[in-house]
Amino acid sequence: MAVQENTTLKAAYADKVAADLAENTAGQDRIRAEIETLQAQLTTLETDHTLLKSVSAALGDPTGGVPAPRRAARKTAAVAKKAAAEKTADAAAPKKAGAKKEAAKKTTTVAAKKTAATTDKAKAANTGADKGPALTELIHAHLSSQSEPVTAREIAKALADANPGRNVNDNLVRTTSERLVARGRADRIKQGSTVYYTAKADAAPAASEPAEKATAAAS
């Protein structure tokens, strides 16, 4: 009896660790996608800044009348953000069994949520305002309206067409779709190297979390 209980407990821990690792990986993908978006926005702003300085100089003001952007500080912030995400990934790997393993997983989850919240707040400050419902709800609604499984790219294109001006890309949609699968609100079907998603007919919307609201504002 004791052997059977130990085997069951071990299997339960293994399933929990696998689920946490999947959620952590999805979180890393989402943060990397957001960093890429922010980097693209920064590149655009820098290009505009250079153009505006040229125009200002042509008008007789060689300095442009404004201080130069603090490139070093921005680069340092981006490196620190990436390091924080990598540190979170390292902390997610279980190193000890029993209570220590469970405590480590809880610490990792809290750290990942704080990192995601910080990144989402920064992105929300750049975009300016909340632009609609959470991306998870948009994706679930789209999946529910489809009669056949669809890929993340197909979802992203449909949402981009239906929500002009909102930031929707393949990586962000894929990460959010995986979150729906983890919560039991969607199914994941893999055929060869292609992954398809479908909505579960009996899935009920989960309560919105602060991180999802920040993602909606950033999108």
Rank of each mutant, 00 (worst) to 15 (best):
M1H: 07
M1P: 02
A2V: 14
Q4F: 10
E5I: 13
L9C: 03
L9D: 10
V17R: 14
V17A: 15
D20C: 09
D20H: 05
L21F: 04
A22N: 03
E23R: 13
E23V: 01
T25Q: 11
A26N: 11
A26H: 04
G27E: 07
Q28W: 04
R30Y: 02
I31S: 00
E34N: 05
I35A: 07
I35C: 02
E36W: 02
T37M: 04
Q39R: 09
Q39M: 08
Q41K: 10
T44H: 05
T44C: 00
T47D: 08
L51I: 14
S54Q: 11
S54H: 08
A57P: 00
A58F: 10
G60M: 12
G60Y: 09
P62H: 07
T63F: 12
G64W: 01
G65P: 00
P69N: 05
R70C: 00
R71G: 05
A72P: 00
A73Q: 11
A73V: 15
R74K: 01
T76E: 11
V79N: 07
K81L: 14
K82Q: 07
K82A: 10
K82W: 08
A84R: 03
E86V: 02
K87G: 15
T88S: 08
A89W: 08
A89L: 13
D90H: 10
A92G: 06
A92I: 06
A93H: 12
P94L: 09
K95C: 03
K100C: 05
K101H: 09
E102N: 05
A104W: 00
K105Y: 01
T107A: 13
V110A: 14
K114G: 14
T115A: 15
K123E: 10
N126A: 14
N126Q: 14
G128S: 05
A129F: 02
A129M: 03
D130S: 13
D130T: 12
D130H: 05
T136K: 04
E137H: 06
L138I: 02
I139C: 06
H140A: 14
H140R: 12
S147N: 07
S147A: 14
P149K: 13
P149H: 15
T151Y: 06
A152W: 02
A156M: 00
K157W: 03
A158T: 13
A160Q: 06
A160S: 12
D161H: 07
D161F: 01
N163Y: 13
G165R: 10
V168C: 02
N169P: 02
D170V: 14
D170Q: 15
D170W: 14
V173P: 00
T175G: 05
T175V: 15
T175K: 05
T176R: 01
S177T: 09
E178R: 06
L180W: 00
V181T: 06
R185H: 06
A186I: 13
A186L: 07
I189A: 09
I189V: 14
V195S: 08
T198F: 01
D202H: 03
A203N: 07
A203K: 07
A206Y: 02
A207S: 14
A207E: 15
S208V: 15
S208A: 12
S208H: 10
E209G: 12
E209K: 10
E209I: 08
E209C: 01
E212Y: 01
T215S: 11
T215D: 11
A216V: 01
A217V: 12
A217T: 15
